[in-house]
């Protein structure tokens, strides 16, 4: 295994994060804080407890998951799209590095960044609401699993995209709506039966539910199902990435 190459890509990508600290770290933290001010404080104070948890605390896992999904996708998609856009991808393609090593470098860096942001968001949340995490190891496990899975998804988007517009289409028009409608700010048990059933087709429901379980020990769907759906999505993304490198899709002629 070309460890030097993995390290080089990882360090290069992480350096970009710290160089663009305002865009990479501060901006998501500010926007998450605004969610707490609006939903947790202004509106949340008028909403009754859900499953014995105050509304302000209840939305914390959903907000972290929202931030995690969007940041994982954005970081990973931009990380691989930008070399394609400026042409420096030639160096990756001509280096003695396997597709797995490329993925570990880019996806590893993107996942690290989004986990950092998730933890910063959690720290920010703790300033607004009292938090008790019932299953901290599971919480970290879900955080890492979701970050890696959606960074892989972002990596696929970055390879698929032919323009900056396409790079934004899936995160903006599909992932964000799914995250908002996936129980980030409410329990799907609060929905009418028909909408609850429809919501179960939304994969984000399982991510948020599992993650919320790690905080409060309560979930909309069984933890095993949440875990299985997340792992299924991870395997699907791995399969697509393997196919991309095998065929050279949008990378090699």
């Amino acid at each position: 295994m070309n460890i030097h190459a993995i390290r080089a890509i990882y360090k290069f990508e992480m350096a970009r994060t710290f160089r663009t600290i305002l865009q990479s770290v501060v901006s998501p933290v500010v926007s998450t804080s605004l969610y707490f001010v609006v939903f947790g404080g202004a509106i949340g104070s008028r909403i009754a407890e859900i499953d014995g948890v105050t509304y302000g605390a209840y939305i914390v896992p959903g907000l972290i998951m929202l931030s995690l999904l969007t940041q994982s996708i954005m970081n990973a998609s931009f990380g691989i799209y930008f070399p394609k856009f400026i042409g420096t991808i030639y160096e990756i393609l001509s280096a003695p590095i396997s597709s797995l090593e490329i993925v570990i470098g880019y996806v590893g860096a993107a996942a690290t960044k989004s986990i950092m942001l998730g933890l910063i968001t959690l720290g920010t949340a703790a300033l607004f609401v009292p938090l008790h995490i019932e299953h901290p190891l599971w919480m970290l496990g879900f955080l890492a699993l979701t970050a890696v899975t959606f960074s892989l998804f972002g990596f696929i988007i970055g390879i698929w995209a032919k323009s900056f517009e396409q790079l934004q289409v899936i995160p903006m028009l599909i992932v964000t709506p799914l995250a908002f409608l996936g129980g980030s700010f409410y329990s799907i048990d609060m929905l009418p039966p028909l909408w609850r059933t429809i919501s179960l087709a939304n994969p984000v429901v399982y991510l948020v539910s599992g993650f919320r379980w790690s905080f409060f020990g309560k979930s909309d769907v069984a933890i095993e199902i949440s875990l299985a759906i997340t792992l299924l999505f991870l395997v699907a993304c791995l399969g697509i990435v393997a196919w991309i490198f095998k065929t050279g899709y949008r990378l090699k002629n």
């Binding site: 070309n2 030097h4 190459a5 390290r7 080089a8 890509i9 360090k11 290069f12 350096a15 160096e91 990756i92 280096a95 003695p96 590095i97």
Partner: peptide
């Protein structure tokens, strides 16, 4: 930074 990246990519 860019020259260092290249060296690493090629396994050095």
């Amino acid at each position: 930074a860019t020259v260092t990246l290249s060296r690493g990519l090629f396994g050095r």
